[in-house]
């Protein structure tokens, strides 16, 4: 029973943690790419990393926090342009391969020993070096706040201040996505997802729309990167290819091309993982499966879940079968 309570608590904690919010934000961005426009961006983690580096390095360089965020967004925009210009006129597979590669390049360059002075190399940058200005903005005071099953410091890293801002960003972005996707602009994107030649024949500049979508989703990815590192530290390897895969898993779990799908998906993603880990830890004797292995077992289950979701419920939890974004014949 104790074990069960521990698992439940950790699921509840993960449900509201800034890390979950960050995954949700990244998935919201990817939803604009993949869910609404049909762009196969396999480098969303690269956008996160670009945003994270730009933000952290700007703060360490002494810039005010607003400017640092702005620089992160501009950096993501430039990254999107570099990726989009050569590929958005080509078939979708090429964007997939180029984004995958580019995200990997960002990670390799970021962790390169040549840049240790700037990016911290493979050790990365510790949170204390860039967290200060954000913590200073807090008006939550210094105490400790209990709220329902949750109990955190008001401001300290991983405290309520971080949680509240992260989820506020999530809420604002959901509102934004809802507003633009019901508009004619969103309609053009969905048209492109279905058949870009048809949309081109109607006189819409498909290339420009795809670029706008790539930039917008990428910029949201950069925001996710900032939210992700604020309560933690910045390490290039934590935003690698696996991260992109996890973002995809969360998006598809929740439901692509829906407003709340990415958010729900991110929460469910962590919940499944912790649940499996908890159950395996409790019921399987440790000589068969040790602590390390329960964690890996949970990831195996995540992988299989992704397969099963895509096969049997491609519209995810929230999606409508008729509107799902895949080409299902």
């Amino acid at each position: 029973m104790d074990q069960f309570l521990t698992t439940l608590t950790s699921i509840l904690n993960s449900a509201i943690s800034p890390q979950t919010a960050a995954l949700a934000i990244a998935a919201i961005g990817l939803n604009i790419h993949f869910g609404y426009t049909g762009l196969l961006n396999f480098g969303q983690a690269g956008f996160m990393l670009i945003g994270a580096y730009a933000f952290a390095i700007s703060i360490i360089g002494g810039l005010p926090i607003v400017l640092a965020v702005l620089i992160a967004l501009v950096a993501a925009t430039i990254f999107a342009l570099i990726l989009g210009i050569p590929t958005l006129k080509l078939r979708g597979d090429y964007l997939a391969i180029v984004t995958l590669s580019a995200a990997e390049i960002v990670r390799m360059v970021g962790r390169s020993s040549l840049l240790t002075n700037v990016t911290g190399g493979s050790n990365g940058i510790t949170g204390n070096e860039y967290r200060g200005p954000f913590t200073d903005l807090s008006f939550f005071g210094d105490g400790h706040i209990d709220f329902g099953p949750w109990s955190y410091d008001a401001t300290g890293s991983n405290g309520w201040w971080f949680i509240a801002t992260a989820w506020l960003v999530v809420a604002l972005l959901c509102l934004f996505v809802w507003a633009i996707m019901r508009s004619p602009w969103g309609r053009v994107l969905r048209g492109i997802r279905e058949d870009e030649d048809a949309v081109r024949a109607l006189g819409k500049n498909v290339y420009s729309y795809k670029m706008q979508a790539l930039i917008l989703g990428g910029v949201i990815g950069a925001i996710a990167g900032i939210v992700y590192i604020l309560p933690a530290s910045l390490q290039a390897d934590s935003m690698g290819r696996s991260m992109t895969y996890f973002i995809f898993t969360a998006l598809l779990l929740g439901g692509a091309a829906t407003v709340f799908g990415p958010v729900l998906g991110a929460i469910v993603f962590f919940a499944i993982r912790l649940f499996v880990q908890g159950v395996a830890g409790q019921f399987v004797p440790s000589n068969i499966m040790n602590g390390q292995q329960t964690e890996q077992f949970a990831w195996i289950v995540i992988g299989i879940t992704l397969m099963l979701v895509v096969i049997f419920r491609p519209q995810g939890i929230l999606g409508n079968k008729k509107e799902l974004s895949f080409d299902v014949k």
Binding site: R187, V188, R193
Partner: peptide, 27 residues
């Protein structure tokens, strides 16, 4: 090339010219 996962009416609206709402900032 019907846009399968858009409704018939949305397909039609997509065809129209001069839509201010097709600009992201206006949208």
């Amino acid at each position: 090339k019907a846009l399968s996962k858009l409704t018939v009416l949305e397909n039609m609206r997509l065809g129209a010219k001069d839509q201010p709402g097709e600009n992201l900032l206006v949208a």
